[in-house]
């Protein structure tokens, strides 16, 4: 227990060190989550649009890829 508190205290500078690591974790995770969600949203929308196009058979082969 004492070892843990000593580790967390970081020689009295714990607040600075843990804030630095905390901010880094939050920022990197936020970038990752936002990127994944955006990608899924766009790829889903693209699928929907393509399915809709296949449904309306009058105009098929103009634009794919």
């Amino acid at each position: 227990m004492e070892q843990i508190t000593e580790f967390l205290a970081m020689g009295g500078h714990g607040a600075y060190i843990w804030s630095a690591y905390g901010i880094t974790t939050i920022v990197l995770l936020a970038v990752l989550v936002v990127s994944i969600r955006h990608m899924r949203g766009q790829e889903y929308l693209l699928q929907q649009l393509r399915a809709a196009r296949r449904g309306g058979a009058s105009h098929q082969n103009e634009l794919d890829e």
Binding site: L32, S35, M39, Q42, E43, L45, L46, L49, R50, L63
Partner: peptide, 21 residues
């Protein structure tokens, strides 16, 4: 993250093309 975002960009471009069409 670059690969994930490139996939977004590519999908967005295709979406734009379909809508323009």
């Amino acid at each position: 993250v670059l690969i994930l975002r490139l996939r977004s960009e590519l999908a967005a471009t295709k979406i734009r093309n379909i809508r323009l069409g």
